[in-house]
């Protein structure tokens, strides 16, 4: 008999994260200090922020590979304005830009029915190019110290307030997604779009909002990037999309949609950030980063697919078995010729 309350996927991810730290700590005890753990979490803050946004998209059953480009673009815009003394405008335009890119994506995908992988691949290329146009190929530097210092402000010990803010955002958005009526639309659309339509849920609208949220959070990530990193190159944010998608998957979000939560995305981001630090501590060069991520990703995704397939098959067989009425069946006559 199958479990009635299955273990939430987030629990598995948390256990993995804990095991990771403990395991490494056993090998190299200096890893397991509170400071180190907090350091790891702090370094995952930008991934976490971007992962929140993309989680909305993935939960509705789509994908967004343009978040890295959005992050880079918004970082460039914000950075250039902050450098010129205009913090407020910098933040405003960055957020607006993120929303706008998300809107374009959402429009193409929900209205024009362009597959999300292709649409966002396209916008990724376009925005990447636009970064060069905007920055003229040059780096953006000389960010005022005060702005850079923002990322260093600590609360409650060593946690940066960025991370704290991010956690707050995670909790709020998580509550939104799980407790509010409208927030639950995302999961519904990803879980069973036809069923959602039947209940009167606006499927297209929900997807567009999801993409706009993805762009918005990528922009927030861009703003944080300016503060944390301190300078913006034209290739800022490259590869982030793959990392945050991996983070979501590691955190228990299924790419088929309808499964997972923002908490999971956060844990996944923490795992991603920790892997590099773990490798350093174990004496591996960071070269192994990608390999491990790749293997992890493949293993998780394959297991997930196999599990889902088995479940679907079980349901199908159950359905068919229920249709058979258990009565006496007609005995077969030996030869069909009579008279």
């Amino acid at each position: 008999m199958h479990k009635k309350h299955s273990i939430p996927r987030e629990t598995t991810s948390v256990i993995f994260l804990i095991l990771l730290f403990v395991g490494v700590g056993l090998i190299n005890a200096s890893f397991l200090t509170v400071d180190n753990i907090i350091l790891s979490l702090n370094s995952s803050v930008i991934y976490t922020v971007v992962a929140i946004g993309i989680a909305f998209v993935i939960i509705t059953g789509e994908i967004d590979v343009s978040v890295g480009a959005t992050l880079g673009m918004t970082a460039a815009v914000c950075g250039s304005m902050v450098r010129d003394g205009n913090v407020g405008m910098g933040i405003f335009w960055a957020l607006l830009l993120g929303l706008f890119i998300g809107l374009i994506n959402g429009f193409g995908i929900a209205i024009l029915r362009i597959p999300s992988i292709i649409m966002t691949l396209g916008t990724n290329g376009i925005v990447r190019g636009l970064i060069y146009v905007y920055t003229d190929g040059k780096w953006i530097e000389n960010i005022p110290l005060k702005f850079k210092a923002l990322s260093q402000v600590r609360l409650f010990g060593s946690f940066t307030w960025f991370y704290f803010l991010t956690l707050l955002a995670v909790v709020l958005m998580h509550l939104f997604m799980t407790k509010s009526q409208v927030g639950r639309y995302f999961k519904a659309v990803g879980d069973n779009p036809n069923g959602a339509n039947l209940l009167g849920i606006p499927v297209s609208g929900t997807k567009i909002i999801a993409f706009m949220l993805s762009g918005l959070f990528a922009a927030i990530g861009g703003i944080m990037y300016v503060s944390r990193v301190g300078f913006i190159t034209p290739i800022a944010g490259i590869g982030y999309e793959m990392k945050v998608i991996a983070a979501c998957v590691l955190g228990g979000i299924s790419l088929t949609g309808g499964v997972g939560s923002l908490m999971g995305a956060t844990i996944g981001a923490a795992i991603m950030a920790s892997i590099s630090r773990v490798l350093v501590f174990l004496g591996f060069p960071s070269d192994y980063d990608n390999t491990i991520t790749g293997i992890l990703l493949i293993v998780i995704v394959v297991f997930d697919a196999v599990f889902q397939a088995n479940l679907a098959e079980k349901m199908r067989r159950q359905r068919l078995a229920a249709k058979i009425v258990h009565t006496q069946s007609v005995a077969l006559e030996e030869a069909p010729d009579h008279e």
């Binding site: 009526q181 999961k187 069973n192 069923g195 209940l199 009167g200 309808g258």
Partner: peptide, 19 residues
């Protein structure tokens, strides 16, 4: 053929779409 949301609880399935 029931069109439920497989990954949601019974309660969530029933209360989905209400205001």
């Amino acid at each position: 053929e029931p069109m439920l949301f497989p990954n949601m609880s019974v309660e969530e399935n029933i209360t989905m779409g209400f205001r």
